[in-house]
Amino acid sequence: MVDLVVTVKPGSDFDAVSAHLSQAGLEVRDKLEAVGSITGSAREIDVPRLRNVPGVLDVTESAPIHLNPPGTPR
């Protein structure tokens, strides 16, 4: 499973896109309608199918963020 961020095209039916993503294999974590994205996880093999869901602008793996250690520029 990979953690994913799905960007929804502006003007799309957000709930409908979310439902289609679920059907295509996305385990939805958060529906973030105010910023137009949906986070969740899916099998790597299902990612191309998620990209083809109508209303999807982009599918990207959720990237890690780490603060620099103390004593270095933060």
Binding site: D3, V35, S37, T39
Partner: peptide
Amino acid sequence: GGGTTATVLAGMNWAVA
């Protein structure tokens, strides 16, 4: 000090909402 794109987006969504 760790997070991900998903946690940042969740925070952005909360702030914009």
